[in-house]
Write a protein that binds this DNA or RNA. Structure first.
Length: 444
DNA sequence: TCGTTCACGC
DNA sequence: GACGTACGTGAACGAA
């Protein structure tokens, strides 16, 4: 991919400069917290190791491998599971596959992995790159195939958030400057909106303009429940296991089992009835046959999703792919050309993912300029694909938020007329002088 | 040193 | 009718 218009080149040029400003400002780190937390976690890990080695399986592990014993070795774990529990696993021993294994040792191994990840990759990684209490990650615009950004030393774009326990351990390390709050402005569903700018499916546009809750609607269809019975957790499963994967090109053979597994992971229920029991009543099947029937049901939901709900979107995907096969390249809305050998899903996803990030990048550039022009003390400190983080003095809080909203939803549409739908941002704010972990959404 | 596997994010 | 998830970084492990 290369910029082929003057404005595309300028976007990268100005983007590199704006990100450079943020890199030099840096993110404030609670170094004392990090050091203490690392010590505490090391202690927990040692206790856990002791516990493991006092179990029968742990003793066998040590006996077999002696000084070469490594609890992080999947090869060794595989042998112990087979010899000590008679459980033979040929494939992956990752979290997903291990969590269903009924062997006493696996829960402790998974907990140990989680702790050492949080300590090693994150807290120790932060201290490794921290200079005088500030972190200055590298934000790159020249590495990702899609012309998204990437980030390293350390990677500020994959800090834990989904597991609340790990999120707390790690995010407490990130703090605002004295008298400030961290303010995170996040585009809502920007990839879905940018995709709609390409395919212009009228149903999708209507959904986005009216605030129709597609995730809930699809939860209702997937789990065969009335719309008003869709719980938050069912909506979450629908969003992350059906809607997003479907937009990325996944299909029922992958999506069906994922939605099925989510039932137990999230303990889904309908009116107090366990979800699998509910589905059994609906599909008139039990056991393995119920699973097969559920996957088949998801196949029909998927067909209806693409062919009944979004036929224009579906046709666009065909046309876009055919045009790429014919020409050997395609152009993005933000003025880049993509050439080279691509698979179907890549050719369809790259322009969307790239242009969606470019919306954030444009806003980041304009925000950087506006803060300087207005002589504000607020500083931008980082960016995570569809969100921008500021370190904002209490007295500038309202102005900063208003400015960010205006730039990222109004000014951008005046600058880029290809954006044919409203954009929306959510703003989250930490407590005064409090860590990133305390961020909360604010009412409009 | 390098490829693979794991784990974390959007 | 077959086909079929996108983009990243970092650490540990283990073979070369």
């Amino acid at each position: 991919m290369n910029p082929v218009t003057a404005s595309a080149y300028k976007l990268l040029h100005d983007g590199a400069l704006a990100l450079g400003v943020a890199e030099r400002r840096g993110i404030r780190i609670d170094v004392g917290y990090c050091k203490q937390a690392i010590q505490d976690m090391l202690k927990q890990e040692q206790d856990l190791e002791k516990k493991i080695f006092s179990s029968k399986a742990g003793k066998y592990w040590k006996y077999t491998y002696g000084a070469n014993t490594k609890l992080g070795s999947v090869d060794q774990l595989r042998v112990v599971l087979k010899d000590k529990y008679g459980i033979s696993i040929s494939g992956s021993l990752d979290k997903l596959h291990l969590s269903s294994v009924k062997a006493g040792i696996v829960d402790d191994i998974l907990l140990l992995r989680k702790l050492s990840k949080a300590r090693g990759t994150y807290l120790e990684g932060i201290l490794k790159s921290c200079i005088d209490g500030y972190l200055h990650p590298d934000f790159n615009l020249h590495t990702a195939q899609t012309f998204r950004s990437s980030c390293s030393n350390p990677n500020f774009q994959n800090i834990p958030i989904r597991d609340p326990w790990v999120a707390e351990l790690v995010r407490k390390a990130f703090i605002p400057r004295k008298g400030n709050r961290i303010v995170e402005g996040d585009y809502s569903g920007v990839e879905v909106r940018v995709a709609a700018c390409y395919h212009q499916d009228p149903t999708m546009i209507q959904y986005l303009e009216t605030g129709y809750d597609m995730h809930s609607a699809m939860a209702a269809e997937c789990y065969m429940i009335p719309k008003d019975k869709v719980s938050k957790k069912a909506r979450y499963a629908s969003k992350n296991k059906f809607v997003f994967p479907a937009f990325y090109g996944s299909y029922y053979k992958q999506i069906g089992p994922d939605l099925w597994n989510a039932i137990d992971e999230l303990s889904l229920e309908v009116d107090g009835v366990p979800m699998k029991k509910h589905l059994s009543n609906k599909l008139h099947k039990k056991g393995d046959a119920l699973f097969d029937a559920f996957v088949a049901h998801i196949q029909t939901v998927e067909n209806s999703f693409w062919n009944q709900r979004f036929p224009v979107y579906t046709q666009w995907k065909k046309d876009w792919w055919d045009a790429y096969l014919k020409k050997g390249y395609f152009l993005t809305k933000t003025g880049f050309i993509c050439r080279g050998k691509m698979k179907r899903n890549e050719a369809i996803n790259y322009p969307v993912q790239g242009s969606a990030f470019h919306c954030l990048l444009w806003s980041f550039i304009e925000m950087t300029k506006a803060l300087k022009k207005n002589k504000m003390k607020s500083v931008l400190i980082g960016q995570i694909h569809d969100s921008a983080l500021g370190d904002v003095p209490e007295e500038e809080l309202e102005d900063y938020i208003a400015l960010f909203r205006e730039i990222s939803t109004e000014r951008i549409r005046a600058a880029w007329d290809w954006i044919i739908l409203p954009l929306d941002v959510e703003v989250e704010v930490t407590g005064l002088n409090e860590s990133w972990y305390t961020k909360k959404g604010i009412a409009l």
